[in-house]
């Protein structure tokens, strides 16, 4: 059962990914990428990661798409045609191959006796109830056990805002001057 749902979802994802990357019009590409995130969110849901699914839907399908669309309204609508690049294709295949080698060695998918389910993780589940008193274990790990990571994550978001403000200057602060000076350059 799980096999069929997962396999279908991932196959669907692969289909979306391929058609997104083959598309010439960027708009379609962005839209398919949003769809990719939505399907991925579904997959996360199937894999018991409800919080992740929620976030992926909001971020991947939401924020990322909005940002991409805003970008698209300023850039050429179509991609220049490219032939398959040999070296990158080779690199990507090698990476995939290496990972496959690694993965064939790993504990079986879903195996309850895998190390990751027997070290640290059980303590989170017990601790979440006894020491923190929060039923959502993800929340207790996120905000308490690994709260410092979350502080880091918040700072990353903050950094992104600072970076974007630095790069595209937020509101129409100084564009007029820049535009005028570039026009002067062209004139001179």
């Amino acid at each position: 059962m799980g096999f069929i749902i997962d396999a279908t979802l991932i196959a669907f994802l692969a289909l979306i990914a391929i058609s997104a990357l083959r598309r010439k019009r960027l708009f379609g590409m962005v839209m398919l990428s949003g769809a990719f995130s939505l399907v991925a969110a579904t997959l996360f849901l199937v894999l018991d990661a409800v919080d992740v699914a929620f976030t992926e839907a909001a971020v991947g399908a939401g924020i990322s798409t909005v940002l991409a669309l805003a970008t698209l309204s300023l850039v050429p609508a179509e991609e220049k045609p490219h032939s398959i690049a040999i070296v990158p294709a080779f690199l990507a295949l090698t990476t995939g191959l290496l990972l496959s080698i690694a993965v064939s060695d790993l504990p079986e998918f879903g195996a309850a006796d895998a190390p990751i389910h027997n070290h640290v993780a059980p303590e989170f589940i017990i601790g979440s109830e006894e020491k923190i008193g929060v039923p959502n274990v993800v929340t207790s790990v996120l905000a308490s056990y690994r709260g410092y990571d979350t502080l880091g994550e918040t700072v990353v978001v903050f950094t992104a805002a600072i970076a974007v403000l630095l790069i595209i200057g937020g509101w129409t602060r100084r564009e007029t001057e820049t535009a005028e000076s570039t026009e002067d350059d062209h004139a001179g």
Binding site: R146, V156, T159, A163, V164
Partner: peptide
């Protein structure tokens, strides 16, 4: 002393560095 925390801070320093380079 935490491997994932390294990644988070790596990204903090990198993201800000991208912006600084772009300046």
């Amino acid at each position: 002393g935490d491997a994932f925390n390294i990644f988070v801070f790596l990204e903090i320093s990198s993201l800000s560095a991208y912006a600084l380079v772009a300046m």
